[in-house]
Each structure stands twice: as C-alpha cells, then as structure tokens.
C-alpha cells in the first residue's frame, strides 16, 4: 500500500507500470485518474487545491486500509496532488490490484467515494473574473451510503 500527497506532477504510465510489476497473484488491476476539468465557458485559469498536512495522509491511509479489509486486495495506491493546477492536469490517481476484477473495480470506486468527502482537500477555482471555493455536493455525501 502506498499513499502519496504531493505538489509535483506524477507520471500516470510509470506509476501504473510500477504498481503492476512483478505481481502474478492478482489478475485484475484497476486505475482511476482525476483530471482538472475546465469550466463550461473555458474560463478556468487555475485550480488551487489546499489540504491539511498530517490529517490528509492519515485519512487516506485509513480509507485505503478500510478498502483492503473489505475486499481481497493485493495492493492499493493513492496519489493526490495539492497546490496550483491547470485545466487538463492530473489531480490524483488510485490503483487497486485484486485476484478478480469485481473487487478491483469496487474497491477503486469505494476509494474515490471516500476520498472525495472524507480526505481533507479543498478546491478553489480561479477564473478571469475571480476565485471561488468549490462547494461539496450532496450527491458526493449520498454516495457513501451505498457502502
């Protein structure tokens, strides 16, 4: 299990390759990558991501450990960036390895649902006309009830 909270960009291909390397026990590897999406009017200059150093790592570790306890996962990877990102930049990725795909897919969704509303990150959209904190969505909180 690896948890990384970092300002620097990550290499999606290299991370996925390293995660999959030398593993013959797990027949399924799922990766998910979150990307900074531009606003509908193409107005987004920067996405600023603030976090709570210390608590962030603890919360992500706890979420990943819960996923490992719940599904038979060979391994889990979570990388989440903070700082100033541009549209198209990759914000975060998760990877899960499991003997069979159902567990790998479900665990990846679980990780995403929980880290959206239980890991201390806050997004701020900076546009030509000003800056605004992204509000949490009710549907993100509701998504947790299915687990």
């Amino acid at each position: 299990m690896r948890i990384a909270v970092q300002e620097a960009a990550f290499d999606l291909g290299a991370e996925a390759n390293a995660f999959a390397a030398g593993d013959d026990a797990n027949g399924a590897i799922v990766t998910f990558t979150g990307v900074v999406r531009d606003l509908a009017n193409g107005d987004l200059d920067v996405m600023e991501i603030e976090h709570y150093p210390g608590m962030t790592e603890r919360a992500l570790t706890k979420i990943a450990q819960e996923a490992k306890d719940r599904w038979s996962l060979g391994d889990v990877l979570v990388i989440h960036r903070h700082g100033r990102l541009a549209p198209g930049d990759r914000i975060m990725m998760v990877a899960t390895a499991a003997p069979h795909r159902k567990h790998a897919f479900e665990a990846a969704e679980y990780l995403m649902d929980y880290l959206k509303s239980r890991a201390p990150f806050w997004k701020k959209e900076v546009t030509h006309s000003g800056a605004e904190w992204v509000a949490a969505k009710d549907e993100d909180e509701d998504a947790l009830t299915r687990w």
């Binding site: 239980r118 990150f121 806050w122 992204v134």
Partner: peptide, 10 residues
C-alpha cells in the same frame, strides 16, 4: 482543533 468546510477531494 481544525475547522473547515465540507471536503472536496478527488
């Protein structure tokens, strides 16, 4: 003690 708005990770 830390105070903050609902989180928006991912």
């Amino acid at each position: 003690v830390a105070f903050f708005p609902p989180m928006t990770g991912g």
